[in-house]
Computed example of a mutant assay.
Amino acid sequence: MDKLRKHIEEIITVSDEEFAHIKTFFTLKRVKKHQYLIQEGDQANFEYLIMSGIFRMFYLDSEGKEHIVQFAGENWWMADYQAYFNEKKADLYITCMEDAEVLCMTLQGREKLSADLHKMEHFFRVKLTKGYVAQQRRIISLLAGNPQQRYEEFGKLYPHLMQKIPKKYIAEYLGVSRETLSRLYSANK
């Protein structure tokens, strides 16, 4: 739980008593490689804070093709937010890419914690805003950037992920073929 406190205190300061209260809203879950946190049709009961490991969020189109929405590593928050906040069934899948640990929080827990400690409401707002900005940047990159630009941006933003994620998934995330990714990789050596 020291990692959780450090993560929170990047944005707000909490006392020992406040942190003792905060941690009661989280449940630790160990996740094995290839295990799903959520699948399409599941009830999206949790938001996850990644403590270790890497996750891939994707959706499947009507032909069964996987489209990667997001990768998440340590200290990233992840959920099918549309389903989580609207208390609906998930449209997305979240799968573990290496053995990992996550902290799980329910929406009811999040709301109660925010009401109990308004500084946590601020913390969650800052985290959601940063996530929203990152998603907008990704959409603009997909709409306006060429494959070379998308590859370079991914490498600059997430160098630690570039080394850990199989190239087939990076290619999928960037919207390019595996062959194109190989050419981009060779051109950037």
Rank of each mutant, 00 (worst) to 15 (best):
A100W: 04
K112Y: 05
H34S: 14
A44S: 13
L37H: 02
A187D: 08
H118N: 05
I50M: 08
R137L: 01
L28S: 14
T13V: 00
G109K: 01
L49F: 09
A171P: 10
Q43A: 11
N45Y: 08
Q108W: 06
I12R: 07
P166K: 12
E74N: 11
L103G: 03
T27Q: 14
W77A: 00
N146R: 05
R5T: 08
V31L: 01
N75T: 01
I54E: 13
L103C: 02
K112N: 04
L49V: 09
I38C: 09
Y48D: 08
Y151A: 03
I139F: 14
H118I: 02
I54K: 09
Q135G: 10
R30G: 12
K23W: 10
G73R: 11
S177Q: 11
Y36I: 07
F85T: 13
T129M: 11
H34L: 11
Y59H: 12
Y158D: 05
T95M: 04
L92G: 02
A83N: 08
M162Q: 13
K119P: 00
A187I: 01
Y84F: 10
K33H: 06
V14R: 04
K32E: 11
D16A: 13
E40G: 10
A90N: 00
I22M: 03
F154N: 03
M51W: 12
I54S: 10
G155L: 15
M97L: 14
A187C: 01
E10R: 15
Y84N: 07
H160G: 00
Q82L: 11
R183G: 00
K89D: 12
G73I: 09
I139W: 10
K65A: 09
E153F: 01
Y158C: 02
E74D: 10
D42Q: 04
D116Q: 11
Q108C: 04
M120Y: 01
E9F: 01
R30E: 15
A90W: 01
D116M: 06
I11C: 04
E17L: 09
Q43N: 10
L28Q: 14
E9V: 03
I140Q: 13
A115V: 05
A100P: 04
K119S: 02
Q148F: 02
L4I: 05
G73E: 12
S182W: 00
E101S: 14
F58K: 09
D99F: 06
E111C: 06
K89H: 13
I170M: 02
I94A: 03
D91Y: 15
D99K: 08
S186A: 12
P147E: 04
F154H: 03
G131T: 03
D99Q: 07
G109H: 02
A79V: 07
E172H: 15
E101P: 09
E18M: 02
Y59C: 11
Q136R: 13
S15E: 04
M105L: 10
E179A: 15
A44L: 07
L142S: 06
P166N: 10
G155N: 15
S114E: 08
I170Y: 02
Q108H: 11
R138V: 12
I165P: 09
S182E: 00
